[in-house]
Amino acid sequence: MPSPADAAPTEPHATPADAPTAPLEVREDIAAGFELSLTVVVRPDADAYTRELVRTTLEGKRWPGNATRAASVAAILIDNAVRHGAVFPDGTVSLRLAVDADTRELAIEVEDASHEFPGFAGATQRNDGRTPNGLWWVAQYKGRLSWTVTKDDDAQTVGKRVQVILPAY
């Protein structure tokens, strides 16, 4: 099976017209001033590892946004991919960070082997006054959430990519 990095360009996913928040298309036009792509091995400390790696990387690259919040969002995306998506046959998911050279916005992307995102329309909403789900934090941090299916070179669906765009300031 091809790795997520080898996947062909994809089509953005749309939610029903009556969805409380319509998704934005996955941004494909990021002119990366800085980019980091890696494979995360799924294990009990994967979210903590991701949080620390993202925070220290963004601080080291002097990204002007809140590196702690960005690290939290990356860890949430990894956790959601493992708990609600599907890991690739080799026991991994993919993580990509890209800082737009012009806007300094940060794209955080996680790819997994599931081609579905049940409940996307309400993913950033609070659940009936209970503790908010992890993606609720994306909205609190002024991030934009989107997703798309990923396809291999033969146009076969191989999974999905979830993208969050965080502002730099």
Rank of each mutant, 00 (worst) to 15 (best):
L106G: 02
T57H: 02
D79V: 12
H84L: 06
P16A: 13
R161W: 05
F117M: 13
L77I: 04
R69H: 14
R144T: 01
P132N: 08
V162T: 15
T157C: 10
L106F: 01
R96L: 05
S94P: 07
P12F: 05
S94V: 09
G91N: 14
D153I: 05
S94G: 12
G60H: 00
Q156A: 13
G129P: 04
V138G: 03
N80I: 09
L24V: 09
F34R: 07
H84W: 05
A67C: 04
E105R: 09
I78K: 02
E111H: 13
S3R: 11
H13E: 15
R96H: 06
L106E: 00
V54W: 02
L24T: 10
P64Q: 05
I76G: 10
A5C: 11
R69M: 11
Y141V: 12
P4R: 05
A98I: 00
R83Q: 12
A19N: 13
N127W: 14
G134S: 15
R161M: 06
F120C: 10
V158I: 06
I165Q: 00
A81V: 05
L166I: 06
A86T: 06
M1R: 10
N127P: 13
D153T: 06
A46Y: 08
W147A: 12
F120G: 06
G60Q: 00
A155Q: 15
G122C: 06
L106N: 01
A101P: 10
E52P: 05
D90T: 13
V162C: 11
Y141E: 15
W147F: 13
A139Q: 07
P2Y: 09
H115V: 13
T50A: 03
V99L: 01
E59V: 01
L36Q: 03
L95I: 05
V110G: 02
L38H: 03
R130C: 09
E28G: 13
A46S: 14
V42A: 14
R69N: 12
R161F: 04
A7G: 07
S146Q: 04
D79A: 14
F34K: 07
A155K: 15
F117V: 14
I76W: 13
V54E: 00
I108R: 00
P132I: 07
T92M: 08
E105D: 11
M1V: 09
A107N: 01
Y141A: 15
E52S: 10
R69L: 12
G143I: 02
A46L: 09
I78M: 02
K160T: 14
T103E: 08
W136V: 07
P16I: 12
F34A: 09
G134E: 14
E109F: 00
V82E: 04
P118F: 05
P12Q: 02
T103M: 06
D100T: 02
V138R: 02
A22F: 14
D112S: 02
A98M: 01
S146V: 02
R96A: 04
P12L: 02
H115P: 12
V138M: 02
S114E: 12
T39K: 08
A70G: 00
